[in-house]
């Protein structure tokens, strides 16, 4: 019973608040929910888009989760994903002649390294200088935007387009999308990589010595230090892993979809990753459903904008916000409601 209440409370709270918002706006809530759900899952193409939007959220969600378990709040996933994508596209454009698995593997490693580098900058400053990771990672986001803008426009600019974007990568660097199952949708093999990463992070956190250290550091850094754990090294490593995971967003976006890096391509995947990680309560396995929920909202809200006369896609942000509040308020609410429930059943 308790568990049921725990899972039901956020759902009921979310539906109530969102329904209220829609009613105030003067639209029919059922049409709106229908439009969102139909937009996200109504056809094979729609499902493909939903999966495509969810994939980067799995990467950034995992990125935030790993840092969270070490007691770090990584707000820099956005910057890390840009630097990861930048090194990926740089590798693909500078070593054009590669073929087969080497090409793609090399590009993926480049993305990992780029993200890891950007993440470990935060880790270094945190571990050895005591700088607060939130401040540092937020600031580094802006540095990464500027760096990407510079390299895209001055080093790798696509001469045939007015848009701020790099040239296209060679065919060897493109990973196949799932046209056969989801026609015209951009979902691709990066989704498999995302699922693999979820398993890997779960294994790392719960089945490896390293993960034990990390969780220990996260629970109590002081105790970990006294127990003789290399706390600083672990913080540095955690931020590197966190950044590397965020960097993989480039695999989905560049190798799988647009085949070039557009300036400012991310609609805030890094920041949505924070929401995903919080909704998943720091559990790697729960990142998948959380990412799917947000991916669904992103795709569904676009269709909502087309279908509804009064609602715009901003409703998705309202829902995201309510989800976060509901998740945060859930422990308090469930305690209160449990008491009520006990009283009610006793009488």
């Amino acid at each position: 019973m308790k568990n049921l209440i725990k899972t039901l409370i956020p759902v009921v709270a979310i539906l109530t608040v969102v329904t209220f918002v829609i009613l105030v706006m003067g639209d029919n809530p059922f049409n709106v929910f229908q439009s969102i759900i139909w937009g996200a899952f109504g056809s094979a193409t729609s499902i493909g888009y939903t999966l495509f939007y969810s994939t980067p959220l799995v990467f950034t969600g995992l990125s935030v989760v790993v840092a969270l378990r070490a007691g770090l709040f990584n707000i820099g996933a956005e910057g890390q994903l840009y630097i990861g994508s930048l090194s990926l596209v740089a590798y693909a454009l500078m070593f054009k002649d590669q073929a087969g698995a080497v090409a793609i593997l090399g590009a993926v490693v480049a993305a990992l390294l780029g993200g890891a580098l950007w993440g470990s900058l935060v880790g270094l400053l945190k571990a050895f200088r005591g700088s607060h990771e939130v401040v540092v990672s937020i600031m580094l986001n802006f540095v990464s935007y500027a760096l990407c803008g510079y390299f895209i426009l001055n080093q790798f600019k696509n001469p045939f387009s007015q848009n701020p974007e790099t040239s296209e990568v060679e065919a060897a660097f493109r990973i196949s999308n799932w046209e056969a199952i989801f026609p015209h949708a951009p979902v691709n093999n990066a989704a498999l990589l995302a699922v693999f990463c979820v398993g890997l992070v779960w294994w790392l956190l719960y089945r490896s010595q390293w993960g034990f250290d990390v969780r220990f550091v996260g629970e109590s850094p002081e105790a970990a230090r006294r127990a003789g754990l290399p706390v600083r090294m672990r913080l540095l490593q955690v931020m590197a892993v966190s950044g590397a995971l965020a960097g993989l967003v480039g695999v989905n976006e560049i190798l799988g979809f647009s085949h070039k890096m557009k300036d400012q391509f991310s609609p805030g995947y890094g920041f949505m990753g924070i929401a995903v990680a919080l909704l998943a309560r720091g559990e790697p396995l729960r990142v998948i459903p959380a990412a799917l929920l947000f991916g669904m909202l992103q795709k569904g809200s676009l269709d909502l904008e087309i279908d509804s006369q009064k609602m715009t896609r901003d409703l998705a942000y309202v829902i995201q916000g309510v989800v976060m509040i509901a998740v945060a308020a859930q422990p308090y609410l469930s305690k209160k409601l449990e008491k009520r429930w006990e009283l009610w059943t006793r009488n």
């Binding site: 400012q264 391509f265 609609p267 269709d303 904008e305 087309i306």
Partner: peptide, 14 residues
């Protein structure tokens, strides 16, 4: 309205 580059395609297709 398209607030970001990623939404042109689904909007036109939609």
């Amino acid at each position: 309205e398209s607030p970001d580059d990623a939404s042109y395609e689904p909007a036109i297709r939609g």
